[in-house]
Amino acid sequence: MLHDRLTKGHTPDDRADVALDLAWNAGQSACDEYQAKALLRRIGIPTPKGIRLSASQSAKGALGGLESPFALKALSDNPIHKSDIGAICLSLPSEEAVDDARAEIAARMADAGQTLSGFLVEEMADSGLELIIGGIHDPKLGPMIMIGAGGIFTEVLNDTIFGLCPISSFDAIEMIESLKILPILKGARGRAPVDLTALESALLALGGETGLFWQRADRIAEFDINPVIVNAKGVTAVDARFVLKAST
């Protein structure tokens, strides 16, 4: 039983706030994906290995340490839906392919009227089930955290559940166990069960008593981590954005 494996929430690393403050002080309306992922890593949520390129920087010789194939994503200070505007290219086999894709994405960003602040090149994430973890403020009841079936069909599937912050370990488990896709997470039809404890820890690291969102709800207006890939080895935040409150 999942209930038997209660775990404590992560205490966010003090440095987690650095990336947040950086974006806040620069007056950005959102953390770009690179900043968002720095935040997540520091509260113990893994992300794919990646490197930031400036808007005009070539990938050639710059991807040392990353293994192909690569994912290439546009970075922006505004919250953007990357897949909607084609600001993302996956499974690029080489540095050359990354550079070709850079040009295409830059053009699409310009078409969409979005400012490009750089690129994020990442290793492709392991496969697994796609979930979403997010957070918003209810105007009456305050910060709340969500988990659900993720990916681009999140809204269509509508298999999500919310918890009012701060959530307890019990709340986190109950939220996960309320999902319609729970049997799949638990390994329906001969699949390997996913690491539910890692999922629970991720929820607590964001929405628990010491969680990042609950602690910094004064600055974070809303956030999506979508998808979070979850498999037998753990969770990986593949895409993330934190929308900031207006810094007035």
Partner: peptide, 22 residues
């Protein structure tokens, strides 16, 4: 109107349901 997926999925109903559950 919400900027995020999460915002599009959540609202007063979800908040009160969470209150009831918790």
């Amino acid at each position: 109107a919400a900027v995020s997926h999460t915002g599009a999925m959540g609202g007063g109903r979800q908040a009160w349901e969470a209150l009831a559950r918790q």
